[in-house]
Each structure stands twice: as structure tokens, then as C-alpha cells.
Design a protein around this nucleic acid. Structure first.
Lengths: 109, 109
DNA sequence: ATTACATTTAGCTAATTAACGAAATGACTA
DNA sequence: TAGTCATTTCGTTAATTAGCTAAATGTAAT
């Protein structure tokens, strides 16, 4: 499967698009994302893997947490795509972003 | 399902991405597309419906043929996305485009 | 070492998706 | 009205996908 197809497949899933839109506002660890998405941790972890393999997100460890964030300087196609996605403003993902801002990982994880 | 998700789902299928890339080079009727894609006409017709409902392609009748083409002036998100997609150059879709140029509907349909 | 966060695997549902052939229907042309 | 291109529907099959729980493993901090 070629890269661009992989990218569109990654984004063509509601849960993964929700995750991408949340990561626009802040870096998040798996358990924060899990608490907002409402799926199990293995499920969320797998979605993150798919996003990572599509080149959309990157991970870095922050002490005991694994932080996920949108890739900042990657492929031109992906950078431009992420700019386009920033303009998406839709009730579910907006609510997720507001929740994400209010969420403190020290209370959740 | 909200619009942007519908768009990514439409593009997250190899056959439909092939169709989009072919439509970059010319308007095509269903039987031309069918002959290049190699699926049955009902199948291709359904893919075109999905692309149409995502707002990516439009149709217009040209005599006995139904021409499909990429939307030229639509939603800003879609316009920008189609610009990004233009840069995709990958063996399968390139070959499709070359075939499309060489294809004469009067011989095929 | 133990704890905490994360990932992976396995085995399992359930839902969705893509495809087919065949047949009926539409839409338009000649 | 007969022919052609296109669409839709039906019934079916096969593959993929998303989700779960449970359990094992990895990784790093305390």
C-alpha cells in the first residue's frame, strides 16, 4: 500500500480523526487520549500506531508518559494536509479539544 | 458522518484514489473508467457515487456519455486537497493516467 | 524490585466494505 | 421505438476493520 493511500486510510476513521484534532491543541499521553475517546487502551494504542505508521504523529517519552503529537516538520504532503485539517471545526472534535485542554493527566492516569 | 470524514473515507480506497488521479488528466465516462480499472460497471458506478457524495467529483452528460470530472470550484477544503493530491505520483496511478490519455471512448464503449 | 504507563498478542465478535453476476430501471440518442 | 450508456437493486461472498477482554511483555521511574 503506497504512502498516500495509507495516510487517507488513517484519516478515514472517526476515532483517529478525533485523535488528530485533539493533538492539535496539545501533546497527549495514551491514557489521556483513552479517557476522552472512551475505548480501551489497547484499541487506542493501535489507532496511534496506525497514525504513526502513516507519518502523521510522533511519540516521545516524558518521564513515565509516552507523549504523542502531530508531526511538526515532516513530508510536505503531510505538513500541508495537517494545515488543511486544522480548519476542520466540527462539534464532536471541538468538544474533544475542549475536554483535552481541561484534562490533567495527573488526575486521569 | 460529517463531511471531512466522508472525504477521507472516499480517498482511503485504492480504486477511488486511482479514479481521482485519472480524472486529473481528463473527463471520463463510466465505461472508459471501467475498462482501465478492470472492475464491473456497477462497482465503478458505485465508487463514483461515493466520490460524488464526498464532493470530490461532478458529473455532466455529454450526448450518450456521462462524464465525470474533478470538481473545479467547490469547497475550499476540497479545492486545497485536490491541489495536494495532484502532487501524488506513484507507479500505478501514473500508468492509469497514461492509459487514460491513450484511451479513446469510441473504441472502448 | 516494584509500580506505572504502554504495547503487543491472542482469540473473539460484530460491522463494514468491496466485489461479483444478474436483472431491472433510467436517461438519453438516433 | 430501439439501442446505448449508466444506475440501482438483489443476493451473495470474501476480506477488512474496529472493537473487546485477558494476558504477557516492554520500558522507565521511584
Amino acid at each position: 500500500m503506497y504512502d498516500h493511500l495509507k495516510i487517507f486510510k488513517a484519516l478515514g476513521d472517526e476515532t483517529r480523526l478525533r485523535i488528530v484534532k485533539m493533538l492539535e491543541v496539545k501533546k497527549m499521553c495514551v491514557c489521556e487520549i483513552t479517557s476522552i475517546i472512551g475505548s480501551s487502551m489497547p484499541t487506542v494504542s493501535n489507532h496511534l500506531k496506525i497514525l504513526k505508521e502513516a507519518g502523521l504523529v510522533v511519540q516521545d517519552r516524558d518521564e513515565k508518559y509516552m507523549n504523542y503529537s502531530l508531526i511538526s516538520k515532516g513530508d510536505k504532503f503531510i505538513d500541508d494536509l495537517l494545515v488543511l485539517i486544522k480548519d476542520i471545526d466540527e462539534p464532536q472534535t471541538r468538544s474533544d479539544r475542549e475536554t483535552a485542554i481541561r484534562t490533567d493527566r495527573n488526575h486521569i492516569c
